[in-house]
């Protein structure tokens, strides 16, 4: 059972208070994109055994969407951060690097 902290209202809760929203930091490709770009955006998913970035929503709380950095192999939560960014903030990346040296995810390191 995961315990997450909402970066907006600051409330910590176990996972039933939240709703998982899938892979984070997807870049949207729609009209005018190539088939490969659209396929990638629409269907292909990062599915790592280890460091992963996701969208979550504080459904039974403030209702806001936010981001979480987790390890899918240990269920450890490295941290949560704002939804208004297109890549994880430096302090989250540093935290992950301290615990999982050499990690990478898509183009992030």
């Amino acid at each position: 059972m995961l315990t997450l902290t909402c970066p907006y209202c600051g409330v910590s809760g176990e996972e039933t208070e939240f709703h998982a929203g899938g892979e984070a930091h997807l870049k949207r490709f729609i009209s005018g994109s190539t088939d490969a770009e659209f396929d990638e955006y629409m269907f292909l998913r990062e599915n790592p055994k280890g460091v992963h970035f996701e969208r979550w929503r504080h459904v039974y709380g403030c209702g806001k969407w936010f981001h979480a950095a987790r390890d899918t192999n240990t269920l450890e939560v490295f941290g949560t951060y704002s939804a208004q960014v297109s890549e994880p903030p430096k302090e989250i990346k540093d935290k992950i690097s301290a615990k999982r040296p050499g990690w990478s995810w898509r183009n992030f390191k």
Partner: peptide, 13 residues
């Protein structure tokens, strides 16, 4: 469960 997981352990609820 609703999120990616490799632990072969699901959530209690």
């Amino acid at each position: 469960d609703g999120f990616n997981n490799y632990t072969q352990r699901g959530s209690f609820h």
